[in-house]
Nucleic acid binder design. Structure first.
Lengths: 272, 272
DNA sequence: CATTGATAACAGTGGAGGATGTTAAGATAC
DNA sequence: GTATCTTAACATCCTCCACTGTTATCAATG
């Protein structure tokens, strides 16, 4: 009866091609739709559909005849692209996070793809209480027998697939968790940042309600900033990054008394 | 882009056969597994799997060599069986409920299969706010563009697939809905009942927070009772039943000033 | 101990839905 | 106005997964 709690990943050929298209566009700067159709040996219609998808994700910008890399900042596009493909790193970080969980604990998870990876691994940590506002985590954990699930209510935000707002914060404030796993979109050497006000308020509330606060960050998010400051890094009891983090950045963090853990990427993820 | 929000109904052959098996067992009282395999022309293994499923639903009881109808009370088994098959009635009731919804409203839905049917129909009522504690409704409505979704948090109960408890009630109390659609497991001529304390508390909170309270009841639930009293029927602004309701029962309700609506079952549901 | 029933494990099958291509209609640049 | 690009709509194909059957092992009855 050991079910798999992995996500239902869409067929690879499509995602693969989109990744390659993104890579190509980011490298070349700009390219025509028909060129891409030629290059990847698919119809023009399929290229258009891929480009629509990539544009929706903010990786490229369409114009009549083709696409270009998001002009506002090539760096950001690059980040956006990398975000979609740091799966192995996130899995490694999640594995490390999993070791911090003991049966009987109350675990709080915020809405991020990294904490979702953690959720997939909680199956055999029962008995456990999981608290979250992330619908994808809710769907996953609700299928796990032996895990008590507490949903934080609130208004549903389709862009994050999670519940936010005042009702959510009030729900958080009446709970206490043993450990919080949270992620964010950028960290500087001193602070964690996020671009959305609503999310920042919820994450802060979660931090107030958790005994141990763990920040999960893949290395593509290091050395950046975003609009809103979330918290100083020293407010977290642990910061888990993957092995791709530059050693000087890690050293700088440790110099500032940040408790950094390095999660090495499993070189052979198939042999589970 | 008009997607269907119907449920992913499992292939009919299986459900059909299970219904027929349930029917047969309830009629005969007891039957051997090999008889059933013969009768329905499937393998013994399949019969066992069906019987496991039916036992899980509390419809039959397995013993070595076969199954019998749940001996504790044939009546209840019968109810359990009917509950699974009043789909057409529930759909008709949901259609009627749908006519009470206007764009712009805040609609509250509790956790019941009947209100889930209502949720399926809300797609084209946008803009709309939907408030619910039922995970299946959350999954459905979160896919509907233009509908604002507010999740009531709380502890997840796998048996109901919904969120209950104090956090849920507190969330309800800080909201106000224009209309509440609720269902329950049994109604007498005077009151609505439910067998579980937790559910009753949540439903009562919902009733306090809704301007208009609508009770949705298929006729198999009429003239019964359950452990806990939920509310007098006159507390509801409307009670919607399907056309299968006995006319004397309907008359009795109306004599007691209950505002009963009859939802006729669509004789040709395919021609939508 | 023998016989029958129950379950576990693996393989085959069919159907549903997603992805792609084709065609035609609509939009936009020149 | 024309040519080119884009999108909508439909048909087709393919893949995944739930369902079923078969076989083999395990449990229970007598």
């Amino acid at each position: 009866m050991a079910r798999s709690f992995e996500p239902a990943v869409s067929r690879n050929s499509r995602g693969d091609r989109q990744n390659k298209i993104a890579e190509y566009v980011l490298r070349e700067g700009s390219v025509s739709a028909s060129q891409l159709a030629d290059l990847f040996d698919v119809s023009l219609m399929t290229v258009h559909r891929d480009l629509d998808e990539l544009e929706r994700q903010g990786v490229v910008r369409k114009f009549r005849g083709g696409v270009s890399a998001q002009p506002s900042s090539v760096f950001e596009s690059n980040v956006a692209y990398r975000l979609r493909s740091a799966q192995a790193e996130k899995a490694a970080i999640a594995q490390h996070a999993r070791t911090l969980v003991e049966p009987g604990m109350a675990v709080m998870l915020d809405d991020s793809t990294t904490t979702l990876q953690v959720a997939y691994l909680l199956d055999d940590a029962a008995p456990l209480t999981v608290i979250t506002n992330f619908l994808e985590v809710i769907k996953t954990v609700s299928q796990m027998p032996g895990i008590r699930l507490i949903s934080l209510g609130g208004e549903y935000y389709p862009t994050h697939d999670s519940f936010l707002g005042v009702p959510c914060i009030e729900a958080i404030e009446s709970l206490r968790a043993d450990v919080l796993f949270t992620s964010t979109s950028a960290v500087s050497p001193t602070h964690a940042f996020h671009q959305e006000q609503e999310i920042v308020l919820v994450k802060r509330a979660m931090m107030r309600s958790a005994a141990r606060k763990v920040l999960l960050i893949d290395h593509t998010k290091l050395s950046g900033t975003a609009l809103h400051q979330l918290a100083p890094l020293t407010d977290f009891d642990d910061v888990v990054v993957d092995g791709g983090a530059p050693s000087d950045v890690v050293r700088a963090l440790r110099d500032r008394r940040v408790n950094v853990h390095i999660a090495e990427v499993d070189p052979n993820p198939a042999a589970g």
